[in-house]
Design a binder for these strands. Structure first.
Lengths: 213, 213
DNA sequence: CCCTTACTAGTCAAGCTTGACTACCCACTC
DNA sequence: GAGTGGGTAGTCAAGCTTGACTAGTAAGGG
């Protein structure tokens, strides 16, 4: 599963009501174009698809307020909110994961209650360790790992990566338990979207004028 | 770019001549179904596409030797070999990379001369560090990273991951410089494919009988 | 000798991703 | 007042990925 659905659902949800171009700008604001497949085409496709599936509700809207063609605005439905929370939870726990899904989930972690976030992260560590021992047991031949030749380096890489990730997760759990950040039900949520007309402070030099890169 | 082309080219090349099902079994032997998108459909699609592009040469072949429908055998062309080496080099150096591309490249690293392998890995480290400082400079707001709220944890994750990877790469360079493994032009290459009829020692419990999982 | 099971070797449609392209309007210059 | 540069908002075709499905043969059991 890719991160695009989670990102788009999350963006629409934080806006309340948003059109595609707005979502696109949010994702850029979050830096998502650097670490996930959030090209315009994917975003618009995801919006349409999720509207068809009832996760979003599409309003047909008259011409743009700021020049350009008319736009479609979307609102998240109840089913969409459920799916959103399901995706956040799943992405936080399940290991195997691509960076993009993980990153997106961290971005939305504060939509869960603090206790649940910690529990999910602990579950993630448990799964990493489970995976780790499965791999070492299953993939190390009897005559020692040397028998695999340089192929053994791939396993080495996996294990190294898994360990680094477990370590980072551990750190995050500690910070959250120490009271960092504002979670669901703890007051004003952190707002991570651009208001209409606001400029992206992290603007990459490449804006998207006609998108000819 | 996904890893599938590199994996398929590499598999065909190591066989000399191979049909799709054989490639599919090799990738499973390498464990690639666990860490890359090497589903049957992707493999057959990649074979056809690369044949169309002249990277592979397709022989139409009579019925199977072991029951089942007729099969098409492929051989790598000169253009294919060039593309293969280009992909190995690019995948070893370029950072940003998904795990699957990286893993595939490690699997084929011994097709390069030892000196070049080391040089490419050093270039990889240089790029990781370059990326690292670009990110820290660009994405840390003036008023300190706290201003980002929990979003800062995403950056934290990236940096942690990058550091872990640089460290692992460093270790690999050391092992290679110490004479580990057999590289191009150093004698019998390590063979990582299954001969016809040979059984996969790392067989996952799930074989693929009709593929209905 | 028939029938089930299992393996061989793939195809296919639906969905997803990508890069290039379009169309519109505004602000500005010349 | 005509042209042009750039931002707004999105479409589209080509390619890629996925999961389900097909079809053929061989081996073994009853």
């Amino acid at each position: 599963m890719s991160a695009i659905r989670l990102l788009v659902l999350g963006a629409v949800r934080q806006h309340g009501r948003a059109h595609g171009y707005q979502v696109r700008n949010d994702l850029e604001y979050w830096g998502a174009h650097e670490w996930s497949n959030s090209k315009p085409g994917s975003i618009y496709h995801a919006l349409k698809q999720m509207a068809k599936q009832g996760l979003l509700h599409a309003h047909e809207i008259a011409p743009s307020t700021a020049g350009g063609p008319p736009r479609t605005e979307y609102e998240i439905t109840e089913a969409g909110t459920e799916e959103y929370l399901r995706l956040v939870r799943e992405s936080l726990t399940s290991y195997d994961q691509k960076m993009d899904v993980k990153s997106a989930a961290i971005g939305f972690i504060v939509d869960l209650p603090r206790g649940e976030a910690v529990a999910l992260l602990k579950e993630r560590i448990r799964r990493i360790e489970e995976w780790r021992s499965a791999v070492t047991e299953h993939y190390v031949p009897e005559n020692g790992p040397e028998q695999l030749g340089h192929i053994g380096e791939i396993m080495n890489l996996w294990l190294h990566t898994a360990d680094a990730e477990a370590e980072w997760t551990q750190g995050l759990i500690a910070r959250i338990e120490d009271g960092a950040y504002t979670f669901a039900g703890e007051g004003d949520p952190f707002v991570g979207v651009l208001a209409e007309g606001e400029d992206n402070p992290y603007a990459t030099d490449e804006r998207h004028p006609g998108d000819a890169r």
